[in-house]
Design a protein around this nucleic acid. Structure first.
Length: 535
RNA sequence: CGGGGUGUGGCGCAGCCCGGUUAGCGCGCCUGCUUUGGGAGCAGGAGGCCGUGUGUUCGAAUCACACCACCCCGACCA
């Protein structure tokens, strides 16, 4: 399953064999797409989270809020990313940042505020972002002359209004203009980790918020070929990250003209499929051609002493990936964080009756913890005495910690521990002495298993449709990706969107050539594209 | 921007129709004791300008008007 890079964990042939102890009193109904059907027992739900089958959007919200990833803020459309959620984002960020640097990119920081006039330079770009820009018009407040509070000082109106960046192409190209004179200045390979603001009508935690965090890479090249290669390279890095670290299978493809980034010549995308059968665009990489170079007059002298416009790319992934992580792996008991991104890969819960017992257990745990940490495993020991072990078990399941180790007096006597894995909800007893050799392979096994499970769900939710009636039926009833022929026109795409709410997620890069006819217009087509309803 | 909903201790809610003791319940929190191998029990305790403003009234969480905020559903988007 892993494309490319070698595993951070030792490779595993030591597949842990878990006895399949079902937890009594679970009351979650299994979501239909999963094989491990659990019957609803009718008990009141202790965790008080919606099930996926009942109400998927509510389930998603419950998980984000109750697992402590994020919270609503006092500001409409904006959220607070809480420490546990931010820790996952940091792990994502660190992996990607390493990839970027390994491929020659450097980080930099550009202004949050962009002069309004910059936006009018590239026609497509303005059109795409005009409707969702926050505008700064004044620079000073004053005491309200009529009483309490403060008001905007009307005399402090800005000469030129400033836009809070919805993306940074304009300010960056305005800057690159001064950095580039000769082919010797190229390529410029820069990334920035930043927040951006897009004034959306409707928001959803992580998936669509007014302010969000992301990285945006902006590169300048001497040739179109080189810029296209960069665009593809970054798309590959995203896909590799999503599959190997997020354990989310993605499809790489090109966007149709109507779904393309405002100002791009070509937009590449990585598309994931969520458990409810809706698609999520998880990252994009754009070949910008010379559009921004021309708009900002960025030219260089070539080796042949000719003045040429530079070629550009931009690429980004955002905190939206957090939403994918929740929606692809979570179950009715809570999150399931893939080990490679989990802030805590292992949680150790002591079971004790008194301080003396706890002291003995802690002593043992410290040895275990130290040894695991020496292998680079992130271990959390929860010795709080204000929550029962059962409470902690549920809590860490909600938070999606991949592996839980419980140690009690009986274990101390016998030299054992109870090891539970989150993804399968199974437990078994291990010899304490074997932890060192078995935990890392187990984490790797979970990582692989999560990917395979997600891949299976995606495959089971992928359909072929050869006529429009069947197409509509799939979209309406089953959801998922629908591979279908399309005549290549924006009109057809728009009609289908209007009638079914499904859009063309991408024209997959690896799709075979295949003669067919458009499901809508009946006109000839040479390859299938992927339709789905999307977030 | 249209439609709907909700604002009451940290969280979740009841009370509002039909105005009238000290605004109540669950969770959480604090103290103590007993507990701890799948969300412990008992006892005691702390914590509220009932979203904001104006009005009606002897009296407003409750009635009227206005405002504000957030959430959900649609059109727009990563």
């Amino acid at each position: 399953m892993f494309i490319g890079t070698t595993s951070k964990f030792p490779s595993t042939d030591n597949t842990a064999k878990f006895c399949n102890l079902r937890v009594p009193c679970t009351c979650r109904r299994s979501y239909g797409l999963f094989a491990d059907i659990q019957l609803h027992t009718g008990r009141i739900m202790a965790k008080d989270i919606a099930t996926r089958a009942e109400n998927y959007p509510e389930w998603y919200n419950d998980l984000v809020l109750k697992a402590g990833l994020a919270d609503y803020s006092a500001v409409k459309g904006c959220m607070v990313i809480k420490p546990y959620g931010y820790a996952i984002w940091e792990n994502m960020r660190d992996v990607l940042d390493r990839r970027f640097k390994d491929t020659g990119h450097q980080n930099a920081a550009f202004p949050l505020l962009i002069p309004k006039s910059f936006f009018s330079r590239e026609a497509q770009h303005v059109e795409g972002f005009a409707k969702e820009c926050a505008v700064v018009t004044h620079y000073r407040l004053m005491n309200d002359p009529d009483g309490k509070g403060v008001v905007v000082d009307p005399t402090a109106k800005l000469e030129e209004e400033l836009i809070i960046r919805p993306t940074s192409e304009t300010i960056i190209w305005n800057t690159y203009k001064d950095w580039i004179q000769s082919y010797r200045d190229l390529p410029i390979l820069i990334n920035q980790w930043a927040n951006v603001v897009r004034w959306e009508m409707r928001t959803r935690l992580f998936l669509r918020t007014t302010e969000f965090f992301w990285q945006e890479g902006h590169t300048a090249h001497a040739t179109a070929e080189e810029a296209i290669a960069e665009t593809e390279q970054m798309l590959d890095i995203y896909a590799e990250f999503m599959e190997n670290f997020m354990a989310v299978p993605v499809i790489k493809g090109r966007k149709t003209e109507s779904e393309r980034f405002a100002g791009a010549v070509e937009t590449y995308t990585v598309e994931g499929l969520m458990q409810d059968g809706k698609a999520l665009q998880m990252g994009t990489s754009h070949f910008l051609g010379q559009n921004f170079a021309k708009a900002f007059n960025v030219q260089y002298l070539s080796r042949e002493s000719k003045l040429e416009y530079v070629w550009a790319t931009s690429w980004g992934v955002s905190t939206r990936m957090m939403g994918a992580l929740v929606m692809v792996h979570g179950d009715d008991d809570g999150l399931i964080i893939p080990p490679r991104l989990a802030p805590y890969q292992v949680v150790i819960v002591p079971i004790f009756k008194n301080d003396e017992q706890l002291a003995l257990i802690t002593e043992k745990v410290n040895e275990i913890r130290k040894a695991l940490q020496a292998q680079g495993i992130r271990v959390h020991y929860d010795a709080r005495d204000n929550n029962s072990p059962g409470w902690k078990f549920n809590e860490y399941e909600l938070k999606g910690v991949p592996v839980r180790i419980a140690i009690g007096p009986r274990d101390l006597e016998k030299g054992t521990v109870e090891v539970a894995r989150r993804d399968t909800k199974t437990k078994e007893i291990w010899e304490m002495a074997t932890l060192n050799d078995r935990v890392a392979p187990l984490l790797e096994e979970i990582q692989t298993s999560l990917y395979n499970r997600a891949l299976k769900v995606r495959e089971e939710s992928s359909h072929y449709a050869d006529d429009y009636a069947r197409f509509k039926e799939i979209i309406a009833n089953e959801g998922g990706f629908v591979y279908a022929h399309w005549d290549g026109t924006a009109e057809t795409e728009a009609k289908i969107k209007e009638e079914t709410k499904a859009t063309i997620r991408c024209i997959p890069l690896d799709a075979p050539e295949e003669d067919g006819v458009c499901i809508y217009s009946g006109k000839p087509s040479k390859q299938r594209v992927i339709f789905a309803q999307a977030y």
